Amino acid sequence: MPAPRILGTAAALVLTATVLTACSGAPEEATPEETGDAATPTTVAPDPSPTPEPEPASNEIPTCETLIGETVVADFESIGWSAEEKPLYIGSTQIEGGIQCMWADFSGPAGDHGQTFGWAPLDEEAASAAQTELVSQGWIREEDASAVYVTESPSTVIAPDENGYGITYRFADGQVTVADTKQGLLLIEWPRG
């Protein structure tokens, strides 16, 4: 009776090898090519995959409601504020594709309560020209590892943040953002990730 046991063991080994081969990440085998009386399997090389292209930047245009976070918008609306949208200017230059939003209570009496946020795409040459114009008007330019900040002169700041910064532009990554304080820049969530 040893023969059936050996055949059973051999069959189990072949079945195990087949299952393991099927589960491995080995390339698929093509239909065997016939050469004479014996079949010779050939391995098919995987199709070369092109390197994936980076996703194109979103062509979506920001609005006053999408430029800042949803919770900030909800907070503003809860106190009766709405947004007024205008083109973005840096100094005397209107920035193509830019948006500037003033959030305030426009139905109430005029006052100085409100917040401003802005964004625009901006290439390096235009960013350099904008920074030069602002600095020539007395604005202060600062750099860190991620961006260039240009903020209004401390002598003209009306409502500074806790660090003394008033209106501040942030130039980085082919874009510019602006808020009425440097801390306010942190509320801008555009472009959406």
Rank of each mutant, 00 (worst) to 15 (best):
A3T: 13
R5W: 13
I6Q: 09
L7G: 02
G8E: 10
T9W: 04
A11Y: 08
V14D: 00
L15F: 12
T18A: 15
V19H: 06
V19I: 14
V19L: 15
T21Q: 11
T21G: 13
G25R: 14
A26D: 04
E29S: 11
E29P: 02
T31Q: 09
E33W: 05
E33L: 12
T40L: 14
T42N: 08
T42W: 03
V44F: 05
V44D: 01
P46R: 07
D47C: 08
D47G: 13
P50C: 10
T51D: 05
P56G: 11
P56T: 02
P56F: 06
A57R: 00
N59E: 12
E60S: 08
I61M: 12
T66L: 05
D75T: 14
G80H: 04
S82F: 01
A83S: 10
E84F: 12
E84A: 11
E84Y: 08
E85R: 05
Y89F: 15
G91P: 04
Q94Y: 09
E96M: 12
G97I: 15
C101R: 00
M102H: 04
W103V: 11
A110F: 11
G118K: 07
W119M: 04
W119Y: 14
P121T: 02
L122Y: 00
D123G: 08
E124I: 13
S128G: 14
A129S: 03
Q131V: 15
T132L: 04
E133A: 15
E133I: 06
V135G: 07
G138A: 05
W139N: 04
I140D: 01
I140N: 05
E142V: 13
A145V: 05
A145F: 11
V150F: 00
S153V: 03
S153C: 10
T156W: 10
T156L: 07
T156F: 04
I158L: 02
D161F: 14
N163K: 09
G166T: 13
D173C: 01
T177K: 03
V178D: 01
V178A: 02
A179C: 00
A179Y: 00
L187K: 00
I188T: 01
I188V: 15
E189P: 13
W190P: 02
W190I: 04
R192M: 03
R192G: 04
